[in-house]
Each structure stands twice: as structure tokens, then as C-alpha cells.
């Protein structure tokens, strides 16, 4: 049996995933992180993006996180996200319209604060859309 690590994904509202996995991929602030069992302890912030959990047997589960923190211990990974969704629960239309709204605000060059907020929202929307895209590909190939 391949080595596994225990993965917990929680958001402020609920627990999304808890169980054994072979590998976790998460969007770290400094770049994408792939974590295998026996990884050294690590602490990082997450940016909006997709978390991929490769289960035993090769099946892959996809989650979307809007940001948060990631803690790695040699045998476990904890993702404390601000908000997270299972990829299949994501709403493409809502993400698409959120993206457009954010782009609109950025294009209008409104106040500094709104600009920063819109940028954050845009990053989230893009990350959601990418997650949906990837899930589609997975479905086609699988």
C-alpha cells in the first residue's frame, strides 16, 4: 500500500474533506505546492485557487478555496480556508458574472479601496472558473 497522509480541509462554515490521500496540491502564496507524505513541516498562506486531493487508487477530488492557511506536518495536511467549496458545487454563471463585475470596477478606476477589493474579487472569480474548467477536463478524460 502506498504511503498516505491525512488531509483535512475546513472552512469557517463547514468541514469539506477529511481522510487519507496520496498527494495534495494547493495554491500557496508563493506558488503551487504539491505535498506528498513525509513532507517537512510547512506553514503558508493560500491564495484563491484549486486544491486537488489525490486519493488512494488515483481518484482525484477538486476543491476551490478563496484563501486561507495551510499547515503541513509529516503525516498530515490541514487547510484552513476562509471559504471553500467542492468543485462540483461551484456555480459557473455566478463566477462569470462576478468576474465581469470586478473587471468593470477595475476598468472604471474608482477609489483605491474599491480597486483593491475588486482585484481580490477578480482573482477569486478567475480561480473558481479555472477550477470548473479543470473539473470538466477531468470528467471528459475519466
Amino acid at each position: 500500500m502506498a504511503m498516505t497522509l491525512h488531509v483535512d480541509i475546513v472552512s469557517a462554515e463547514k468541514e469539506l474533506f477529511s481522510g487519507a490521500a496520496e498527494m495534495v496540491t494547493a495554491p500557496g502564496e508563493m506558488g503551487e505546492l504539491g505535498i506528498l507524505p513525509r513532507h517537512s513541516q510547512l506553514l503558508t498562506r493560500l491564495k484563491p485557487g484549486q486544491v486537488r486531493v489525490k486519493l488512494q487508487g488515483g481518484e482525484e477530488q477538486l476543491f476551490y478555496v478563496s484563501g486561507g492557511m495551510l499547515e503541513v506536518q509529516p503525516s498530515m495536511v490541514t487547510i484552513l480556508s476562509d471559504t471553500a467549496e467542492r468543485a462540483k458545487d461551484l456555480d459557473e454563471a455566478a463566477a462569470q458574472s462576478a468576474k465581469q463585475r470586478a473587471e468593470q470596477v477595475i476598468a472604471d478606476h474608482r477609489s483605491e479601496f474599491e480597486y483593491a477589493q475588486a482585484k481580490a474579487e477578480l482573482a477569486e472569480a478567475i480561480a473558481q472558473l479555472q477550477t470548473i474548467e479543470r473539473m470538466r477536463k477531468l470528467r471528459k478524460s475519466g
Binding site: 500557496g28 502564496e29 508563493m30 517537512s40 513541516q41 510547512l42 506553514l43 503558508t44 498562506r45 492557511m69
Partner: peptide, 12 residues
């Protein structure tokens, strides 16, 4: 042991 920090330990 200590963590690997990305990016900055204090902030994190």
C-alpha cells in the same frame, strides 16, 4: 523542528 515559512514567519 521548525516550519518552512512561505513567505515570512512573523507575519504568518
Amino acid at each position: 523542528w521548525d516550519y518552512i515559512y512561505e513567505p515570512d514567519p512573523k507575519e504568518l
